[in-house]
């Protein structure tokens, strides 16, 4: 089929005409439009935070919904990554879970006294980060940044403890949520 396309294009060029001018609409298969972080636990506030940019880069602005967490509490956090650019919503989380050794999620809190740790692993026993445990401290306001790295160097210093500095790789997702601890 491809050879046929090439040949017909050559024929067009030789006759100085363009046979088929139009590019085909591509479906960006790797697009992630939505990040959902579900906080659960035996707490007063159990928020679901959501970052959504359904038309991809540019165009409409993204919507960001942060949340309120309870002070001095423990949460288990589940992350989901979706492609909602078309009506046929795609669950990218599955693709990440399948290639767990090529992905890692990093959390970073700023402005608030909160710690976190991994509660899942990839096939090689290194952290993945689709599930994490978050322990909040005293009240305050700040931000939570969630970063999904493709092809990190998981064995590099500090990376398996959740330090992104030496991870390398490409950032597939980096979203920041406003949070309040009360």
């Amino acid at each position: 089929m491809k050879n046929f396309i090439y040949l017909s294009l050559i024929a067009c060029a030789l006759t100085f005409t363009s046979c088929d001018d139009d590019p085909e609409a591509e479906n960006p298969e790797e697009l992630i439009t939505t990040v959902i972080a579900t906080f659960s636990g035996d707490n007063t506030n159990n928020p679901t935070m959501r970052f959504e940019d359904k038309d991809g880069d540019g165009g409409m602005e993204a919507t960001i919904v942060g949340g309120t967490l309870s002070a001095n509490s423990s949460y288990s956090v589940e992350l989901r990554f979706l492609d909602e650019s078309t009506d046929d919503v795609e669950e990218i989380t599955e693709e990440i879970a399948e290639e767990d050794d090529e992905h890692q999620v990093f959390l970073a809190f700023s402005g608030v006294n909160t710690t976190w740790s991994y509660s899942d692993q990839d096939g090689s026993g290194n952290p993945l980060g689709l599930s994490t445990t978050v322990t909040t401290g005293d009240t305050g306001t700040g931000t939570l940044t969630i970063t999904l790295i493709h092809e990190p160097e998981k064995s590099a210093s500090g990376v398996s403890d959740g330090d992104i500095t030496n991870a390398g790789g490409e950032t597939d997702v980096e979203v920041t949520f406003p949070i309040v601890i009360e």
Partner: peptide, 8 residues
């Protein structure tokens, strides 16, 4: 301008 995308 800094444009916010899902990758930062």
């Amino acid at each position: 301008e800094l444009r916010l995308t899902i990758r930062g």
